[in-house]
């Protein structure tokens, strides 16, 4: 393969893996829990903040990447207990409340910023040779981590007793409750898990960018598009949606104008949602 072809394949894999990583937490919260979580982008931002602070305080971004899911997961648990749970029966309320939370987090980060972005170095800098092409080492790490995170999340939800209880709770809360499952704990835990995945995403992608208040918000539209194309009610639906959006977004600009490529992808997504409103994986019909 020519270096050009290798680079193209790698770029598509990189773009798609980043979108899958961003969508993973959303697949849990929006896809499975069906909470329209408009602060999903800010949970990603908080993960990036943890990586940045860890770099500043401990001199290590790697520690931040380990800490980010824990810190943001805990934050998510607190957020579910105080705000999100009040709106399970009120989708519009959830939309507004989580929007407000996101706004608040962005404003706090902005208030602390004195430049248009704060650089966060990648734990592994430089490039790696694949054939005759040189590719970013950190992007390669992200691809590997995404594969592991998706596999781990899938196994946790399908092969563990807790995963079984989570799915039972989300499928039929009353029945699960009657069966002796603490559904309240399950909701808190599931939201926290989705938040932790968002935190991991933020900490992983911030070295590619810089820390800035709109880091999460700037990715929210493709994230939501992936979830809508993928369909609600399952974990794998939104992830397939992310692949369906990510691959053409990465590949089309090889032959056509990037701007036209973006328009085509969005147009195709809209047409698809019109023809198949339930998405790729439709649990409701």
């Amino acid at each position: 393969m020519s270096p050009e072809t290798i680079r193209t394949i790698f770029d598509v894999a990189s773009l798609t893996s980043i979108l899958v990583l961003l969508v993973l937490g959303m697949a849990v919260i929006v896809g499975m829990m069906r909470v329209f979580n408009l602060c999903q982008g800010e949970l990603v931002l908080l993960g990036a903040v943890v990586a940045y602070l860890s770099h500043r305080w401990f001199g290590s971004v790697a520690i931040g990447i380990v800490l980010a899911p824990l810190v943001v997961g805990l934050f998510g648990a607190g957020l579910e207990r105080t705000v999100v749970r009040r709106f399970y029966a009120n989708a519009a309320g959830a939309l507004l409340a989580t929007f407000a939370v996101g706004l608040l987090i962005r404003a706090i980060v902005l208030a602390r910023m004195t430049s248009q972005g704060a650089p966060v170095p990648a734990p592994i800098e430089g490039t790696i040779a694949i054939g005759d092409a040189r590719v970013s080492a950190w992007r390669l790490v992200i691809i590997v981590v995404v594969v592991l995170a998706v596999a781990g999340t899938y196994l946790a939800l399908t092969r563990t007793p807790i995963g079984l209880r989570v799915r039972a709770t989300l499928d039929d809360r009353e029945l699960a409750s009657a069966a002796g499952i603490s559904t309240s704990m399950m909701f808190t835990g599931t939201y926290a898990f989705g938040a932790a995945l968002a935190g991991l995403a933020g900490a992983m992608i911030v070295p590619l960018q810089t820390l800035y208040p709109n880091l999460g918000l700037d990715n929210l539209v493709p994230m939501f598009m992936a979830v809508m194309v993928g369909g609600l009610g399952s974990l794998h639906g939104p992830l397939l949606g992310a692949v369906a959006i990510g691959v053409p977004t990465g590949l089309l600009p090889t032959w056509i104008d990037s701007v036209l490529a973006q328009v085509l992808v969005i147009f195709a997504a809209i047409v698809f949602m019109r023809l198949r409103p339930g998405g790729l994986v439709n649990r409701d019909t």
Binding site: D11, S14, P253, S258, V259
Partner: peptide
Amino acid sequence: YIPIAATDAPE
């Protein structure tokens, strides 16, 4: 050219 709101630009 890339879209105005692009966050990444591998192509």
